[in-house]
Design a protein around this nucleic acid. Sequence first.
DNA 1: GAAAAACTTGGCGATATGGTCAAATAAGAA
DNA 2: TTCTTATTTGACCATATCGCCAAGTTTTTC
Lengths: 110, 110
Amino acid sequence: MADLKKRATLARYEQRAAVLKAMGHPTRLFIVDQLALGERCVCELQEMIGADLSTVSKHLAQLRNAGLVADEKRGTQVFYRLRVPCIMNFFGCVEAVMRTDAQEKLEALQ
Amino acid sequence: MADLKKRATLARYEQRAAVLKAMGHPTRLFIVDQLALGERCVCELQEMIGADLSTVSKHLAQLRNAGLVADEKRGTQVFYRLRVPCIMNFFGCVEAVMRTDAQEKLEALQ
DNA sequence: GAAAAACTTGGCGATATGGTCAAATAAGAA
DNA sequence: TTCTTATTTGACCATATCGCCAAGTTTTTC
């Protein structure tokens, strides 16, 4: 019983970690940022990113597997959208991490 | 000039992604979660996690490099603390991702 | 000074990731 | 049907990550 609870907790950390990991790449983060503004097709994203189309497609697949985005085919194009817009609210905090970091490094120099 | 701005933007994505990546591992996420409750020494974390001490130490080093935690040596022990407590606010959103995911999978079955 | 406790670091093997090219698929246009 | 556009998938290589063991460091205790 306690074991079952422990396993459930572990599973929760794994799922949460998977979501964070999916966003833990500059290109994928850029994609999430763009999708926060509205849906985009793969080719639009590719043009903005400048990488190979297959590379972009694979990044999108990772975001999809993590449950962050949904895709919809219309004609020959596939449009992606953010499934949970609140994602971007996080970055105020991430920025805070970076500011604190910069500040402490400065203080260390003095 | 436009190039400079583009590079600055890229750097921002890279830094943000590094923070997310650091949290994108079950063990490290567990550590962040624990540190949100208060500082812990490495040996306390090791006991909770059950992995090798060196493994825990390396996870902590990754969190430190990302700017998420700070360490302080007191006697023979090293205590770690969260530098930005707001980190944990994010998880309401992460949970939302997971709920939406489960819901859509259910709907797909019907 | 020797021994113990608490960490960190280096090295190693297994496995995962990122990116590119080439091939496969799907839908619309000619 | 054939061609073109949009996208995904597979193969492959280079590199990064994870976890353990062994060895090194620092501080405290005896």
